[in-house]
């Protein structure tokens, strides 16, 4: 009798601790609110605001380890004034995020935090005003017109427009946050590959630093200002 009881308890504990189901926080809804504007401060309508958590799946010991499976917990769009509110399920996760995307004319914003041991005050995350930068597509074409044997080494330095803000218990973690973080391309063109082109998504109005050296001559730097949505720059060497 006693053995059966212990066996029942043991089996029950195994069933509780192991599960193929993914279960999110019971009896909880999170409210995410804010306003989406563009670089000029104008409201962005129909921006899509989504909350996600990332979980492991399959046979695991509770709580699940951080995995790569993404679960959408809530979604809504901004209104004509750019205002939004998202009612979302909630998850105690080390990788919880809020993503804001508009159309291809705007950059993306990502709010990332750990909710593993943290629940926002009043079950509310107020993002206040979120700026999505107006995007431009910059095409940089480099062609050789000087004949065989000539080479060019160059670099393109620009700022990647996506903004990822990391928060620890509601406080911005500046060390892990990167908005408009620097990116670069280094390359050399020679007889094997004399011509090339790069298409970059950058913030409209931003600068691209183009530094080059032809046939190992001293470097020259040109600043390209991306002032239109479809920016084209052609360079011949």
């Amino acid at each position: 009798m006693k053995l059966n009881f212990i066996r029942s308890i043991f089996l029950s504990m195994i069933m509780i601790l192991t599960s193929c189901d993914t279960s999110f926080e019971s009896n909880t809804r999170l409210l995410v609110k804010g306003k989406v504007v563009d670089s000029d401060g104008n409201p962005v309508e129909n921006a899509e605001i989504s909350t996600y958590t990332y979980r492991g799946t399959g046979f695991f010991i509770y709580p699940a380890p951080t995995g790569s499976t993404e679960y959408l917990l809530g979604k809504n769009v901004s209104d004509a004034n750019g205002d939004f509110s998202v009612i979302s399920l909630y998850d105690n996760s080390s990788d919880f995020s809020i993503e804001i995307k508009a159309n291809e004319d705007y950059s993306e914003y990502i709010y990332r935090t750990s909710t593993y041991d943290y629940t926002p005050d009043d079950y509310l995350i107020n993002l206040q005003e979120v700026t999505l930068n107006n995007l431009a597509q910059a095409t940089i074409s480099i062609s050789r017109t000087s004949g065989e044997g000539n080479t060019i080494s160059y670099s393109l330095n620009y700022f990647y427009p996506t903004c990822i803000e990391v928060y620890d218990e509601g406080v911005l973690n500046s060390a892990e946050t990167f908005c408009n973080y620097p990116s670069y391309i280094n390359n050399t063109l020679d007889d094997n590959l004399p011509d090339t082109a790069h298409t970059l998504n950058v913030t409209q109005g931003s600068e691209i630093s183009f530094t080059y050296s032809i046939n190992n001559e001293p470097e020259i730097t040109e600043i390209l200002i991306v002032d239109v949505s479809n920016y084209q720059f052609n360079f011949n060497y």
Binding site: D21, T22, S23, F24, E25, S26, N27, Y71, L72
Partner: peptide, 15 residues
Amino acid sequence: KNILELSNNAKQIDR
């Protein structure tokens, strides 16, 4: 029992 997608086992419970 709130089922996120009918095709998977993700769920959330309200009482």
